[in-house]
Design a binder for these strands. Structure first.
Length: 278
DNA sequence: CTCCTGTCCTGCCGGC
DNA sequence: TGCCGGCAGGACAGGA
């Protein structure tokens, strides 16, 4: 379930592997092993990237954006089950099931996008145009940027009658928060997921904004204190050990005596502690 | 505009 | 043991 922290780790892992001392690794070939993921794969992209060096990587919400020297690039969303695998030049690449997108690098290394459920997608873009892509239109503030705080969050929540949990999943409110960190942040802030979004104002909004920042920051930190920690044994990036307070802990006792409860909101599981969240 | 529901997809897990 | 139903979830479309 890649949310902002996992995607940030993927982006950092790609930087570490493909931008060594500021020099980008060169792409030999890009291969699509099927015509589509969630949307059609961009047929012209392999030609546009062939022979190019990677020049930079960035992240916006749950998206990774990559560019090569010519200015061509792509937007990648990991969907629900997407994984980026880095296979170093001295290791043999053994194709695996669901390896849909494969970069063969000039030095013999490989970068692979593997996504069993194919909820992810990859779109072509350019350095000049990427910010105007439909995927980013209306997207809310980056929670880990300086501009994010309680008043900004409160302003975005104002007038919304639906539950705060559902609002947090809306990328127009704040970018990069998904089901797990929405539950965790609400627990940390002591706010019930059922509370109407519009009623999260003032001090509550301050607490929630701070909790979002805290939960996301700590998740990124737990993703790896050094670059090698970013990788799983198979070279995959972005999934690491988490310890959640409430997510997927139905029935567990928190704070010595209060159980975690699971409810469904907008078709999604919500985990929270009614005794601690109002 | 907001809100709500259904859709996409595969792997996994519980029940019988 | 094996099969089947349900669930997981991010984004988006479409209807109220």
């Amino acid at each position: 379930m890649p949310e902002l922290p996992e995607v940030e780790i993927v982006k950092r892992g790609l930087e570490g592997a493909l931008l060594v001392d500021g020099v980008g690794a060169r792409i030999d070939t890009l291969t699509f092993n099927r015509p589509n993921l969630r949307v059609l794969l961009p047929v012209h992209l392999p030609d546009a990237l062939k022979g190019q060096r990677f020049s930079s990587f960035t992240r916006r919400g749950k998206y990774v954006v990559a560019f090569v020297e010519s200015g061509a690039g792509f937007i990648l969303h990991l969907g629900m089950s997407g994984v980026v695998k880095i296979i170093p030049k001295d290791e043999r690449y053994i194709p695996a099931k669901h390896d849909h997108v494969v970069f063969k690098m000039d030095d013999g290394g490989h970068v692979v996008f593997n996504d069993p459920r194919r909820f992810g997608f990859l779109k072509a873009t350019t350095r000049d145009d990427w910010q105007f892509d439909d995927s980013f239109r209306g997207m809310g503030p980056e929670p880990l940027s300086n501009g994010f705080n309680g008043p900004i969050l409160a302003e975005r929540l104002k007038g919304r009658s639906g539950p705060i949990k559902t609002a947090l999943l809306d990328q127009k409110i704040v970018a990069g928060v998904g089901n797990i960190y929405a539950c965790e942040a609400l627990y940390m802030a002591g706010i019930s997921p059922k509370r109407s979004a519009g009623s999260v104002q003032g001090k509550r909004a301050e607490r929630l904004a701070a909790a979002i920042v805290d939960v996301l920051t700590r998740a990124i930190e737990s993703g790896g204190s050094s670059l090698k920690d970013y990788y799983q044994a198979d070279g995959s990036l972005g999934y690491f050990q988490h310890s959640f307070k409430v997510y997927d802990r139905e029935g567990d006792i928190v704070d010595g005596k209060h159980p975690v409860v699971r409810i469904v909101q907008s078709g999604r599981s919500t985990f929270y502690c009614p005794a601690k969240q109002r």
